[in-house]
Computed example of a mutant assay.
Amino acid sequence: MTIALDRHPSIILQGGQHAGVRRWLWAVAALVFVMVVVGGATRLTGSGLSITEWKPITGALPPLSAEAWASEFAKYRASPQYQLLNQGMSLGEFQFIYWWEWGHRQLGRFIGLVYLGGFLVVAGLRLLSWRQTLVLFGMGLLLGLQGTIGWIMVASGLQPGMIAVAPVKLTLHLTFAALFFASVVAFATFLTPPRRAEPAQGRGMAWLLLALLFGQIALGGLVAGSRAGFVYNTWPLMDGALVPGVETLFVRPAFWENFVDNAALVQFNHRIGAYLLLALALWHMLSLRRAAPGSGGAKRATALAGLTLSQAVLGIVTLLLVVPLWAGLAHQALGFLVLAMGVVHVTRNEGASRG
């Protein structure tokens, strides 16, 4: 992901000038990475609907008395998820899922404060050009939008008859998290002077791989939202075939609903996306290693291909084991590491193309 800015001469001539800004951005990226992992744990433990209200300020305080816990538990018992899925849950079991969701929301608040504080310092001290500062402001709006989407997602799971959040809204929540994460990694990479000058290599393929990475993350969100990883737990065959029959892939009355709510088609699309992404990543690596062995682009392409291969293997293991918590979290975490590598690769290539 390229930051469309003027490349400030001081970025190249004085590598240490923006060291503080870079450290802040990398810290934000690390926090978002942790947030994604905690979000995955919240989803896999079924904790996401345990807090039924959105109170951005007062919601930061957890229940501090027996009466407060009883009140929160009463609100949850009124939710469709409790009534349809978790009837008879004890207070202790409720507290377990509550703390996961509460921790997820507090980490989101903390990220917002860290980002806002850093932005105010950058803007107040004029550490960057006005265009770069404006981009940081836009990224802050994206972060705020992500929080709003998170609540819209939770609200979808509190509707009558729902026992989980809507898959499309979960996918939007994950995809916007990926967009913000990618923008932070891109900006931090942009501000980091390259160790040596290098020509732009494989720019088109680098961009294509990045687009496919975002697509795979979105497809992964649909897999998570529809719980498609808990069915068809064989590989390489799926439902006894490499390509399941039409009667399996298209069972919903409305054609488009199959791409969201039909676990078979959702999982199949995620598999096909993984195959395509891995094949192109390996081809990109081999092309750059032949054209410019030892170059920065070839090394980045090799790292990207290696991470993509590792993610594919981990995805297969996760599927075969029927998504244990550790594997599901590792798969989601590694997916964001692959995304980070893809962003760095594109940003470095674009920087080289501008000289």
Results as ranks from 00 to 15, higher is better:
Thr318Glu: 10
Phe94Met: 02
Arg348Ser: 06
Gly221Trp: 03
Val317Phe: 13
Val313Ser: 01
Gly46Met: 03
Ala19Ile: 11
Trp130Pro: 04
Asn258Val: 04
Pro253Lys: 15
Met35Cys: 05
Leu249Cys: 12
Gln14Pro: 00
Leu84His: 09
Pro293Ile: 11
Leu141Gln: 01
Phe73Gly: 03
Trp256Asn: 01
Ala29Val: 07
Ile3Cys: 10
Lys169His: 11
Gln83Cys: 01
Leu49Cys: 03
Val38His: 02
Ala178Val: 01
Ala30Lys: 07
Gly140Pro: 02
Ala206Arg: 13
Gly245Trp: 05
Thr347Met: 07
Gly157Val: 03
Gly144Ala: 13
Arg195Ile: 02
Glu350Ser: 09
Lys299Leu: 13
Ile3Asp: 05
Leu174Trp: 02
Ala211Gln: 00
Pro244Trp: 05
Ala19Val: 10
Ala312Lys: 08
Leu282Asn: 10
Val185Trp: 07
Leu120Ile: 11
Ala303Gln: 10
His284Gln: 14
His18Arg: 15
Gly204Val: 09
Leu172Trp: 14
Leu222Phe: 10
Asn349Met: 08
Val36Ile: 15
Gly328Arg: 10
Phe176Ile: 15
Gly88Trp: 13
Gln311His: 13
Thr148Cys: 06
Glu350Tyr: 07
Arg271His: 12
His345Lys: 06
Gln81Ile: 12
Gly144Arg: 07
Gly355Ile: 02
Trp54Met: 08
Pro160His: 10
Leu145Gln: 00
Leu64His: 08
Ala301Phe: 02
Leu314Phe: 05
His284Tyr: 14
Gly144Cys: 09
Ala303Cys: 08
Ser10Asp: 14
Leu219Thr: 10
Phe187Met: 14
Gly225Cys: 02
Leu5Pro: 07
Asn258Leu: 07
Leu277Gly: 05
Gly59Ile: 07
Leu91Trp: 06
Met1Pro: 11
Val185Ile: 15
Gln14Asp: 15
Trp207Tyr: 11
Val313Cys: 07
Leu172Ser: 09
Leu276Gly: 05
Ser65Phe: 00
His331Arg: 11
